[in-house]
Computed example of a mutant assay.
Amino acid sequence: MSAPVIEPVRAREPKTPAARPGTAQRTTPARFDTALGWSDKPGLSWALRVLLCATALAIFAAPFLTIFSGAFSTNPSGSSLSFLPHHPTLLNIKVAGERGIWDYFTNSLVIAGGGLLLQLVVSVLAAYALARHRFRGQALVLTLFMLTMMLPEEVIAIPLSLVLGHVPVVGLDLKGTVWAVILPLGAWGFSIMLLTEFMKDIPTEIEEAARIDGVGEFRLLWQVILPLCKPALGVAGVLGFIMIWDQYLLPLIAAKDPTDYTVTVALSILRSDPQVGSGVVLAGAVIALIPSLVVYLLLQRSLVTGIAAGATKG
């Protein structure tokens, strides 16, 4: 007599209601995947969020729209808010060009490009030394970098003017050259501190593995450390460019002749010129605004990634 065969017990599958013929099941989530948690159904909270977003957009976008509108208007009025130009014209741009705005714009591009390149090189080297090495007096160096961030430009304006007029040891007079503006901007405490804190979080195992493979110091920095610091470099690049581009006092004290001015100083000259109207000043402001917008649009992903990476550390 053979033993009875016992079949294994199978788990019952949950019954799902059958879809009606000719209808598709809904796959859209009940809420959008956003930080605000927007609902896909109009309601009181949905209307409130739309109102808040529209208010914020109006507050931040209204000045930009007013500048662009006035720059291309024939007779812009400073007492009224207008988002569309009245009698559109390019005369304001032409007059600003005749006043030398493009020469000042070129000076600003040269200074911003050279200053940013020097600033990033100095910041990377200083941050690498502070983050990946230990030496005597390291805390003092960090404190000095922080102190430079606390001093306003007006405090060091006169001493800096004297130094630029007669550089110690070498005795050079840098006034009237682009180096008088580029060199003081070569070291910025904010970018050094930012890159230092970012490099500190890179695991030491990566560095040790590279050293075992015979990687040298500069190759380690270039091929291992810097690729991991791209978000921080993006933040330092955007903020550093805007900081250099917006300089007003330093180009003013470093110039010997009005032709050495940058576009930010040129705007104050246009504003004080009684022969030009407000439309020419607004046209110069639009010209001065373009590089900052271009740099931000090109590096906005790195900027957001770097800020998010810094906010989620620890």
Rank of each mutant, 00 (worst) to 15 (best):
84 L>R: 04
93 I>G: 00
42 P>I: 07
80 S>V: 01
48 L>Q: 00
54 A>D: 12
102 W>E: 00
94 K>F: 13
70 G>D: 13
68 F>H: 12
79 S>M: 13
58 A>T: 08
80 S>K: 10
78 G>F: 10
104 Y>Q: 04
96 A>N: 11
42 P>V: 12
70 G>N: 05
51 L>G: 05
103 D>G: 12
76 P>N: 01
64 F>K: 14
76 P>I: 02
71 A>S: 06
109 L>N: 15
51 L>S: 02
112 A>V: 05
105 F>P: 00
94 K>I: 13
84 L>Y: 05
56 A>R: 04
101 I>T: 09
92 N>T: 09
111 I>S: 12
59 I>Y: 01
66 T>Q: 10
67 I>G: 01
61 A>L: 09
100 G>F: 04
94 K>V: 14
79 S>A: 12
105 F>N: 00
47 A>K: 07
110 V>I: 05
101 I>K: 02
83 F>M: 11
93 I>F: 11
83 F>T: 10
65 L>C: 08
81 L>K: 03
69 S>M: 02
96 A>G: 02
110 V>R: 08
50 V>W: 08
68 F>R: 07
101 I>G: 13
105 F>L: 03
99 R>E: 04
75 N>W: 08
97 G>P: 01
77 S>M: 02
79 S>T: 12
73 S>R: 09
83 F>L: 15
79 S>F: 13
86 H>G: 11
87 H>D: 15
82 S>L: 07
107 N>M: 02
91 L>K: 07
69 S>N: 01
96 A>W: 13
44 L>I: 05
70 G>P: 03
68 F>C: 12
83 F>K: 05
82 S>E: 11
84 L>Q: 06
56 A>T: 06
88 P>N: 10
50 V>I: 06
65 L>N: 03
85 P>K: 15
110 V>W: 11
58 A>P: 03
57 L>W: 04
97 G>F: 14
64 F>S: 12
71 A>Q: 00
72 F>Y: 13
47 A>S: 10
101 I>W: 00
77 S>E: 09
52 L>T: 13
83 F>W: 14
50 V>H: 02
78 G>H: 06
110 V>K: 14
47 A>T: 13
107 N>W: 01
99 R>L: 13
68 F>Y: 12
96 A>R: 13
93 I>A: 09
83 F>A: 14
88 P>G: 14
82 S>K: 04
74 T>H: 11
53 C>I: 08
102 W>L: 10
64 F>N: 12
112 A>R: 04
96 A>M: 11
61 A>H: 00
